[in-house]
Amino acid sequence: MFSLVTFLVVIAMAMTLIRAVRGPTPYDRILAVNVHGTMTVLLIALAGFLTDRPDFLDLSLAYALLNFVGTLAALKFFKHGHLGEES
């Protein structure tokens, strides 16, 4: 069961990459990468169950936080050209 579900999630991730490559606007790319990240969080958790190693859940939790901060940082960098210089 887990291998089938993991396979389906990997297919979905590959499909979001198509949108990330095609664009057309930078916002589309950031959105696609954000969805890709959400799916990666679940893929890591599924991989933990697949290989019977629950430690993967900690990685998954850390990735969920990183994905959020990464999306905001990419948006901010795109909009301002820097990540908060002293004014």
Binding site: M1, F2, L4, V5, L8, V9, I11, A12, M13, M15, T16, I18, R19, L31, A32, V35, M39, L42
Partner: peptide, 16 residues
Amino acid sequence: LFTGAVLMIISALGVI
């Protein structure tokens, strides 16, 4: 699990 994975694919399809 299966419904969730199918929803993931539908969502990716929507993004495309």
